[in-house]
Simulated scan of single mutants.
Amino acid sequence: MKSRHKRLALIGGGIVAVALAITLILSAFRSNIVFFYTPTQVANGEVPKDTSFRIGGMVVEDSLKRQADGLTVHFVVTDTVKNIPVSYQGILPDLFKEGKGVVAQGVLDQDGRFIASNVLAKHDENYMPPEAAEALKRAKAADTAQSPDGVGRNS
């Protein structure tokens, strides 16, 4: 084999190796990306089926119910337009409170209940993840636009 052919084979092999590495990296990213949705988007069926995603909003006052086992809790998350019931088994963060912001990661079951595998609470009064704040603003604007009297409603 001539040196020119060896060089072309080496370059071709390098290109194939780089393409394979890029494909594997993109595949890993795609399987680990978790998208954020509001309760309104969940209620409207805009979420992926059988795939983990994040839901964010405010914990509805007086919705927190603890089971006798001490680890299972049920609560409701709202974006002030729609409410989604959430079940979680585990220890809640210290800052988790009713009326405060929360982001939960998990899947939606057949009954429309969000089964959380992870729950995160916002860490102070003034902070909310930018995508959560924007989603809450969009949900309120959409609700006000759909209401016949121009005043939002809560379902």
Rank of each mutant, 00 (worst) to 15 (best):
K97N: 14
T72W: 01
A133L: 10
A116S: 04
Q110V: 15
K97S: 14
V86K: 02
K137P: 05
V103F: 03
I115F: 00
S147P: 07
S3K: 13
L8F: 08
G90N: 09
N44H: 09
A116R: 05
D111C: 01
V107H: 04
G12H: 00
A142E: 15
S147M: 06
P129K: 05
G99V: 06
T80Q: 07
A43S: 15
L136H: 07
S52G: 13
T80P: 01
N126R: 14
R66S: 11
D109Y: 04
M128G: 13
R7N: 10
A68L: 07
I15N: 05
E98Y: 04
P85F: 01
S147I: 11
A17T: 14
D62V: 05
T144S: 10
V103C: 02
K97L: 05
Q146W: 05
T144H: 04
E98H: 01
I15V: 15
S147L: 13
Q110F: 09
I91E: 14
D62P: 08
P39F: 01
I15H: 02
E61S: 06
A135T: 01
Q41A: 07
G106M: 02
S87Q: 14
H5K: 13
K140N: 12
G70P: 08
P48N: 06
P148H: 09
R54W: 06
L10H: 10
R54I: 08
N83A: 10
S87C: 04
G14K: 04
K49D: 07
K2Q: 10
V47A: 00
V73T: 12
Q105P: 09
G57F: 00
I55C: 01
L10A: 15
V77S: 01
H5S: 15
V47N: 00
S27N: 14
R113E: 14
I91L: 08
G45E: 09
A104H: 06
A116W: 03
R113Q: 12
E46G: 01
D143M: 11
Q67W: 07
V73S: 15
T51A: 09
G150N: 08
R4G: 08
P93L: 02
K2D: 13
R54H: 03
T80H: 13
M1L: 06
V107L: 13
V18A: 12
K82Q: 15
F75V: 04
V86T: 08
D69S: 03
P129L: 02
P148Y: 09
L120Y: 08
Y37T: 02
L136F: 07
K140W: 08
K122A: 12
L108G: 10
Q41P: 02
V77C: 02
R54Q: 15
V102F: 00
I91P: 00
S117F: 07
L120E: 15
V102S: 02
S117W: 03
K100E: 13
G112E: 08
M1Q: 12
T80A: 14
L8N: 11
V86H: 02
F96D: 00
H74C: 03
A145V: 07
T72C: 02
K122M: 14
S63A: 05
K2S: 15
P48L: 00
V16H: 00
P39S: 01
E98T: 11
G112K: 05
V81K: 09
L71D: 12
